[in-house]
Design a protein around this nucleic acid. Sequence first.
RNA 1: UGGGGGAUCGUUCAAUGGUAGGACACAUGGUUUUGGUCCAUGGGAUCGGGGUUCGACUCCCUGUCCCCCAGCCA
Length: 555
Amino acid sequence: MNYKELINNFITDAIDKDLESGKHKKIITRFPPEPNGYLHIGHAKSICLNFGIALKYDGICNLRFDDTNPEKENIEYVNSILKDVRWLGFEFDEPLYASDYFDMMYDYAVQLIKLGKAYVDDQDAKTIKEFRGTLTEHGTNSPFRDRTIEENLILFQNMKGGKYKDGEKVLRAKIDMHSPNMNMRDPVLYRILHAHHHRTKDKWCIYPMYDWAHGLEDSIENITHSICTLEFEDHRPLYDWFLKQLKIYHPQQIEFSRLNLEYTIMSKRHLKLLVDENHVSNWDDPRMPTISGLRRKGYPPDAIREFIYSLGVGKNDGYASIEHLEYFVRKYLNKNSKRIMAVLDPVKLIIDNYDENKFEELEAKNNPEDDSLGFRKVTFSKELYIEKDDFMENAPKKYFRLSIGKEVRLLHAYYITCTHIEKDSSGVVKKIHCRYDSKTKGGWSEDGRKVKGTIHWVSAKHSINAKVKVYDKLFNKINPYDGDEKNDFIKHLNQNSLKLINNVKLESSMINSLKSEYYQFVRKGYFKMDKDADKDNLVFNQIVNLRDSWKKHTK
RNA sequence: UGGGGGAUCGUUCAAUGGUAGGACACAUGGUUUUGGUCCAUGGGAUCGGGGUUCGACUCCCUGUCCCCCAGCCA
């Protein structure tokens, strides 16, 4: 991808100006996930933006774990994030950790106390909340707000030293309890948490809050542009205030609107709920909007990147459509998948004038637009399977497929004409009898005879059994939160989001199918073998179906 | 009159005082050994009302609607 031209938005406009004015020479961005869950496609936007900008300007993008809350974070999440960012195609040096800066952050806090800009508050959480005021009423100063610097220094040291229980004291910035911006009403800087941290172990029992930590992390790493989502816009005055008080290097925070995808949710907390309550199998369930879910489903990273960059970056909130994402998935897969024939809903087709014991190895192209993907042999014989819906007894005029008396092409094989059918007692078609034209081998005729329909097939005797999983949208509503209490989104879960198809027949060449490979099941869709599948249990996930303009006619 | 942000085709992003454009979606036609791909064509928008200007999506005034903020989460 050509990142120089790929990304152009209001953020790169700002960067261009900073480069022109000489404010910066080298651009440094960062992607700062909290390791408290798996990354989702919303994070992919931030990743593509931050790493993309670094690539565009020959700069650097740090991968930094914002691991300031040990109660929710763990190493499993750290590892998944590392894997997902790399899988998306971005490279980084050793990952960085906010927890590596805990000593520095502590020292800065001491400095802030010495400046008379921070104090230890003995009020409990409930009282602090009460004193904070409301959106329309200003707050009230804490009775502990005017402690001396000396006292604050000792108290803060005692907090660090473990002399108090969780929640007994906090360190707060001394800003303005009358500020119309709630974030400026003496925000908490440190809370007491006697918790085991996955990296610093038991060294600390006080942990910094986001607002305190984030600007310091950015400053320490010499980040030039700290790009975050819109909900932090209100926090920017605080971000700026801290760095100004401390007189340290001051990155610029710029906010953009986060990515929303139709029919799904992007809250890590809520995605975790879906996992914990078994609404999905795990974080990598192919129905999840997580990077690991999309990977398991078979979405190529290139397609995800192209999708993200096609969206652009702005400050409007809105929803990206599933179709838009699927367009890029199909676009990539059309070029990069091998075609094979698979029958998902089989019915027997018998070629009455073909010898019982004969079979032929016919040559088939793996990708009609790209010879470099090679050729393969498919086995043809007297008894085949075709899709049930490729035959209709009473076909409408524009139906191009098989029906009694009509001729179609079997892809890569022969022209066949249907002569008669066999049904069971309840009228279900059990066998379709045809005759083939031996002069049409390969699927074309010298006489220029026109055959409108082409259908796929597999040889019954040579076929391989498999299972297929087809996925639909996770929720029934574009915005699962719409009009409800925040936690009612569960009731909008699509109960039919997973369909298991058991009796799938694959062409014989699939005996050597690979987990790493993308396949197009001709006329059906794109598929990839599930990570838990094996030779004895072939399971394919449908990545996305093929566009189907016939379906529109039938409606 | 609490603060902050936003409003352009159905969706998403452009146009930075000078012909409102692209992509997806949709529609029509063509090509085709996938009713896929590809190609061509078409319909379709500046939140409302004033103002400044030769000229306004852009600047000013005013109104309306939407999103975010009252964690010792990030």
